[in-house]
Design a protein around this nucleic acid. Structure first.
Lengths: 324, 324
DNA sequence: TTGAAAGCGGTACCAC
DNA sequence: GTGGTACCGCTTTCAA
């Protein structure tokens, strides 16, 4: 493998000049540049990344921490990775399977300068511990982190859920069921808070009999619909709010199988406005996840780039379709 | 951030000795070691990985290339990652989403010494091109690669499929349907070859009307069962061989919903012997994917370790349960 | 526009 | 057991 030094010797120029060519410095004679580039081609030269990283003190790599990869975080992940790429950073993904040891490895890689920054999709490590790594490089989280120095980009789902509730109530739906995600999560808490607040405002009873928990994907959604029908609950429910569009999709298609008419017998509202909700015509809440992915990088950029990039302003939007 | 040099100065010992401590060299006075370790703790010292990589000429990182991550490759991935870890190598995952550019980046990282080796779960790049990167480091593939110098660890599914066919035929099943995966894949080709060979041997007709293609997951399996029932084909079919256990699971549960009795009305055979087949009691073919993941690292180890590790001998096994 | 040389933070060989 | 020192391959002043 050729090295910069060899290129210098062969070309008759100094290492400095060869380095300038490599970094597109304007202070190189075009002919000199051409000669050197030509030699590089011939020797199939590529710079050693470790040497660059060591000399520059940065790796142009960002670690992304996630327990698993599924449709829910994929839009965020894709958006983040592409944005980082646009600014010359490569993303390396740490799949932790929920194992704290593996996760700590990512933080250690920040400390050891193997990555310049860290984006957390989800984490099982104590935020206080995470914050101690901030001195080694920037860290951003998708989900909310309960620590004053840790920044995150997802939005408070209280807002989004309120949009959905207001819409349903205005349309005259009164008995509203909820299919929540992880029961212990902040998102679920906020959704429940929103639901209960709106019920109060309309002087309606809180129907906690119609709370479903740990509902995440299509099969889960199907199961909820099966339950509603088989227990006869469906007779008493006017509408249901879903953890995400996949859950809504499962409910929607299962309803069809069961011969339930949507939205007459029950209205369905998804969350996130992902492709599937559009395909099936499901009313949902637009959650600008793509922009959140960009914002995540922008936050890191505050310490990674000389010119930090201003963040997108984010807001939820109701997308009314045929299920309400 | 403290450096080795500073540790040396503060401790009064030389860089060489500090380095020895770092690398657990036996040639260090225990008291010296303790003193130096103590200073390291106090300064919260961690060695710079880039410097180590540069000096050693290796990164102890292995790149894993995959288009997406799903249940099918997860066992392979997990096994590979854990095995590599056992030998001190960290895996970094390149998710390409089928984009050749992103994939080439991984190969480039090998060339630029950012990773010491590459494991390919699936690739869309021409094997001849891949082979040109072998001079920069070891490369191994899970799936078969059609190039003399490229090694892979998955097995010829002709063998596994034959086991299933033999089992069905011996039990008296005669009309056998096939739910294949990717229609253009080598695996599908081999399975079809096996099926046709066994039919010939038993003087039975090849039922290509009962070939299903691009069947990959639970919903796909459900759909196949729906089709069999709705078209009445189920009356004529004795058994069906599935692309994998998820497909079999989808068929199995859908059969229940449709009131079809298994294996009386139709026998079902899965593939891979993953957890779900055990849970549901589905007859399947044990495919030692975990060992394939280990073998993948072992093949890389031939060029990564001084003592290469001998490969596992692999073989398929029939696992008979209640669906045949 | 170009070159010389001092880093970046470790490793490893050779002395003692 | 310990120290001196020449690398590893590239970047980045500082001069010329």
């Amino acid at each position: 493998m050729a090295s910069l030094d060899q290129i210098a010797k062969i070309s008759g120029y100094s290492k400095a000049t060869v380095s300038r060519v490599l970094n597109n410095s304007p202070h190189v004679n075009p002919q000199t540049r051409d000669k050197i580039l030509e030699i590089m081609k011939q020797l199939d030269y590529v710079p050693n990344r470790n040497a660059i990283s060591l000399a520059k003190g940065r790796t142009m790599q960002i670690g992304v921490i996630t327990a698993v990869i599924n449709e829910v975080m994929l839009p965020f992940l894709n958006s983040f990775v592409k944005t980082a790429e646009r600014y010359g950073f490569q993303s390396i993904i740490y799949i932790t399977y929920g194992d704290e040891k593996k996760e700590l490895q990512a933080f250690n890689d920040l400390k050891q300068k193997r990555v310049d920054g860290l984006a957390i999709v989800n984490s099982s490590i104590n935020p206080d511990l995470i914050a101690t790594y901030l001195k080694f490089g920037p860290i951003v989280s998708w989900q909310r982190m309960n620590h004053p120095e840790l920044q995150w980009v997802s939005m408070d789902q209280y807002e989004g859920y309120s949009l959905a509730l207001e819409h349903l109530l205005q349309k005259g739906y009164r008995v509203i069921a909820n299919a929540f995600g992880r029961s212990a999560s902040i998102n679920t808490l906020n959704r429940r808070r929103a639901y209960e607040a709106w019920m109060k405002q309309y002087n309606l009873p809180v129907m906690s009999d119609f709370y479903y928990s740990d509902i995440h994907n299509i099969p889960d959604g199907e199961q909820v619909m099966v339950d509603l029908v088989s227990t006869g609950k469906i007779e008493h429910v006017d509408a249901i709010l879903c953890a995400n569009d996949y859950v809504a999709a499962g409910m929607f298609t299962q309803a069809h199988r069961e011969g339930i008419s949507i939205p007459n017998e029950i209205a369905i509202v998804g969350f996130d406005n992902t492709a599937i909700s559009k395909t099936l015509g499901i009313t949902t809440i637009d959650n600008p996840v793509k922009l959140q992915g960009e914002n995540a990088f922008f936050i890191l950029s505050q310490r990674l780039l000389k010119e930090p990039i201003p963040l997108h302003k984010l807001s939820y939007k109701l997308v009314e379709r045929e299920t309400t």
